[in-house]
């Protein structure tokens, strides 16, 4: 069996496992619930505009902010889903002894790891893109608001999911399934909070506090990518009009990420995956 075929087989098996463990079903139900709830919320916003409480422009402005909040919800579901899926798929199989049976075959451990990672990438990015697109359509149908760069924004959200699941895969090669999920999601939340703190520092002109956000975005790029995605969901002229007092707002973003930062994200993913492979190859099963 060639390495490429091993990788694809493992990816397909990871997806089948996700479906067998009812993860796909749970995520689909959660997403539909969130989409339904947001449909209701956005239609109330439109009704408020029709009844004269808001002008149509103000309703769209509110919709763009609420859209970011709902998208944050989706990115959280994707983060939790992939982090807790990555844990059992590696360390769970090592604990239960399944790995012993699988890895006795003439296949490389790194190919197995890459296959599982690829399966998780397909699951995570597929979810983010489909759910995000559905959410954009809900907002368009109810409030007539369409984000300025939906494709770039969804791609950045997908990249955020890839970053987090790569971290979860690395953790699952060294700690127990549950611990790897908890640590990955905990770090995701901590980076987001550090980003908000950094934003407040930037708004207040305090360089030391602003640096907290900058450094955290380099160490774990989820927050940097999330802020870049928000920029794609919102018109920057609108955010610029709100003034500098809104710089630290957790659901407003003024600027897209630089190419250098996106290259760093790719390097980060490659580096962390490489570390996961080094750890998994030497792991005592």
């Amino acid at each position: 069996m060639t390495t490429a075929r091993t990788v694809l087989t493992m990816a397909a098996l990871t997806l089948r496992e996700a479906s067998r463990r009812r993860v796909l079903l749970a995520v689909a139900v959660l997403t539909l619930a969130l989409l339904g709830l947001s449909w209701w919320g956005f239609s109330r916003l439109a009704a408020e505009s029709d009844s004269g409480g808001l002008t149509s422009g103000e309703a769209r402005l509110a919709a763009s902010v609420v859209l970011n909040i709902v998208m944050f919800g989706f990115s959280l579901i994707a983060a939790l889903g992939t982090a807790f899926l990555a844990g059992p798929t590696l360390s769970g199989e090592t604990e239960s002894g399944i790995s012993l049976a699988v890895l006795a075959r003439p296949i490389r451990r790194s190919a197995v790891l890459l296959g599982k990672w690829l399966g998780l990438v397909v699951f995570g990015t597929g979810f983010v893109v489909l759910a995000g697109l559905a959410q954009c359509l809900v907002v368009w149908a109810t409030v007539d608001y369409w984000p300025p760069q939906p494709a770039a924004a969804l791609a950045l959200l997908a990249a955020q999911t890839i970053v987090l699941l790569t971290l979860a895969v690395l953790l699952s090669t060294v700690v127990s399934p549950m611990a790897s999920g908890v640590v990955a999601v905990g770090l995701f939340g901590a980076t987001w909070v550090a980003g908000v703190v950094g934003g407040i520092g930037a708004a207040l002109g305090n360089d030391g506090v602003a640096r907290v956000g900058v450094v955290s975005r380099m160490l774990l790029p989820t927050d940097g990518l999330w802020r870049g995605a928000m920029h794609g969901f919102q018109d920057s002229t609108l955010v610029a009009g709100l003034g500098s007092g809104f710089d630290g707002h957790p659901f407003l973003s003024q600027a897209p990420p630089t190419i250098t930062y996106l290259v760093w994200v790719a390097v980060w993913v490659a580096m962390v995956w490489g570390l996961a492979a080094a750890s998994f190859v030497r792991k005592d099963l």
Binding site: R211, V214, V215, R217, M218, G224, R227, G228, S236, T237, A240, G241, Q254, A255, P256, P257, T258, T260, Y261, W264
Partner: peptide, 18 residues
């Protein structure tokens, strides 16, 4: 590098508010 502004995370765009 990022803390010393050698590596920019976000593009700085001068957007004139409408």
């Amino acid at each position: 590098a990022a803390a010393n502004d050698w590596l920019q995370i976000f593009r700085t765009e001068q957007i004139a508010p409408v």
